[in-house]
C-alpha cells in the first residue's frame, strides 16, 4: 500500500515541521515584545501582608523562611503556588477578572495579558469554575489571620462555605506549618500589583456585610 505510505510520510514530515515550529518559531513570536519575567524579576517589592506574616507568626516564619526579604518572598510564593496546584484550588477559584457581569466592581480591575507574562503563570491558573470567588485581586482583602483561620476550617469564618478544611497545613498545636505560611503569602501576593485602593472598596462582599 504505497499510497498510504506516501501520504503518511508527508504527514510525518509536516509533523516534524510542527515540532520545529512549536519549539523554534513560536517562542520567538511569543517573546517578541514582552519578555517573560522570572519570578525574581517580577517580585520587586514586598507586600505589607508578607511583612505582617513575619510579625504575626514570628517563630514559624523564622523557621520556615528566615528573614523577610525578596528572596524569602520568592520562595514563599513559589511554594504557595505549588500547594495551590497540588490541592487543585484552581478547580473552584478562578484567577482572572472579566470585563462583564460587574466583576470589576466585585473583584477589582479587569485582568490584562501583561499581568500574566511571567513564570508565576507557568502553568497559568485561569481556572474554569467559581464555587468560591476569584482570587487574582485577593491581596489585602482579608487579614493574614483571616486566611489562616479560613484554611483551618472555612465554616468558622463563613458558615455557608463548602470549601474543604485543610487541617494538614497546621501542626498538632494548630500552628501554621511552612505550607500554610506559603499559601497565605501566595494568596496575599495575588493582585498585590494591581490594588487600586487598599482594603474594601472593591470588595462587594465586605460592603454587604457578613463575614468580614
Amino acid at each position: 500500500m504505497e499510497r498510504f505510505g506516501a501520504s503518511f510520510l508527508i504527514a510525518g514530515i509536516v509533523t516534524f515541521l510542527l515540532g520545529f515550529f512549536l519549539q523554534g518559531v513560536m517562542p520567538v513570536l511569543t517573546l517578541r515584545k514582552v519578555p517573560v519575567a522570572t519570578v525574581e524579576e517580577l517580585v520587586q517589592t514586598i507586600p505589607p501582608e508578607f511583612s505582617d506574616l513575619a510579625e504575626e507568626y514570628p517563630v514559624e516564619f523564622e523557621r520556615a523562611f528566615g528573614e523577610v526579604s525578596l528572596a524569602s518572598l520568592v520562595e514563599a510564593i513559589e511554594l504557595g503556588k505549588e500547594n495551590y496546584i497540588a490541592e487543585a484550588c484552581w478547580h473552584c477559584h478562578s484567577q482572572f477578572v472579566r470585563p462583564v457581569s460587574k466583576e470589576n466592581i466585585r473583584f477589582g480591575p479587569v485582568s490584562t495579558p501583561e499581568e500574566y507574562q511571567n513564570l508565576m503563570q507557568l502553568p497559568h491558573l485561569f481556572g474554569t469554575r467559581r464555587v468560591g470567588p476569584d482570587l487574582i485581586r485577593q491581596a489585602g482583602k482579608h487579614s493574614n489571620d483571616w486566611h489562616m483561620a479560613h484554611f483551618y476550617e472555612p465554616r468558622n469564618i463563613a458558615p455557608y462555605s463548602v470549601m474543604p478544611a485543610y487541617p494538614w497545613f497546621f501542626d498538632e498545636n494548630k500552628r501554621p506549618t511552612k505550607r500554610a505560611l506559603a499559601l497565605v503569602a501566595y494568596v496575599q501576593w495575588l493582585g498585590s500589583w494591581a490594588r487600586e485602593v487598599p482594603g474594601t472598596i472593591y470588595n462587594v462582599d465586605a460592603m454587604r456585610g457578613g463575614d468580614q
Partner: peptide
Amino acid sequence: FAWTGLVYFMGNYLPQFWIPGTAGAAIT
C-alpha cells in the same frame, strides 16, 4: 491516531514548561 499524541503533547507540555500566562491559557 494522527491527532491524539500531538494533542496530548501540546496540552501537557507547552503550558507546563514553556509558555506561561495568556498564551499558555490559549493552548490549554
